[in-house]
C-alpha cells in the first residue's frame, strides 16, 4: 500500500481535520513508519480464531424500556455557547 500526501489528505478530510502543508510533511514519514510496524501482524497465525472485540466475553445487556429521570434541558445546554430558545444552535446544514 502506498502512503503518500494524497492518502493523508483523503483520510484527514474523512476525519474532519484540516491539515496544514507543514503538518502533512511532518506526518508523512511518521505515519509511514507506524503503518510499516502495523504490517507485522499480518504474519500472526490467526487461522480459525474468532476476533475478540472485547478482552472478556460480554453478553448483550438489555434493559426495560421505561421512562427514567435524565439530564434536564438546562443542564444539557449548560456547557455550550451555541444555544437558542432551549435548543442547541448549529452551523448551516446545507
Amino acid at each position: 500500500m502506498k502512503v503518500d500526501k494524497e492518502l493523508i489528505k483523503r483520510v484527514a478530510e474523512n476525519s474532519r481535520l484540516n491539515l496544514t502543508e507543514y503538518e502533512i510533511n511532518e506526518f508523512l514519514p511518521q505515519l509511514k513508519e507506524v503503518l510499516e510496524n502495523f504490517e507485522l501482524i499480518q504474519k500472526a497465525p490467526t487461522k480459525d480464531l474468532e476476533p475478540s472485540f472485547q478482552p472478556l466475553e460480554i453478553k448483550n445487556i438489555t434493559r426495560e424500556d421505561k421512562i427514567e429521570k435524565t439530564l434536564s434541558q438546562e443542564d444539557a445546554l449548560k456547557n455550550t455557547k451555541h444555544k437558542q430558545n432551549g435548543y442547541f444552535k448549529g452551523p448551516k446544514a446545507i
Binding site: L17, I41, Q42, A44, S52
Partner: peptide, 28 residues
C-alpha cells in the same frame, strides 16, 4: 491528530480487514 488519522485509516473500506479485524483476531 496523528492518532485520528491512523485510526481512521485502519477502519476505512479496503483496509479494515487487514488491520482492524486482523488485530481483533490477534488479540484472541
Amino acid at each position: 491528530k496523528r492518532r485520528i488519522i491512523l485510526g481512521t485509516f485502519t477502519r476505512m473500506a479496503g483496509f479494515r480487514e487487514a488491520y482492524y479485524l486482523k488485530a481483533m483476531k490477534v488479540r484472541t
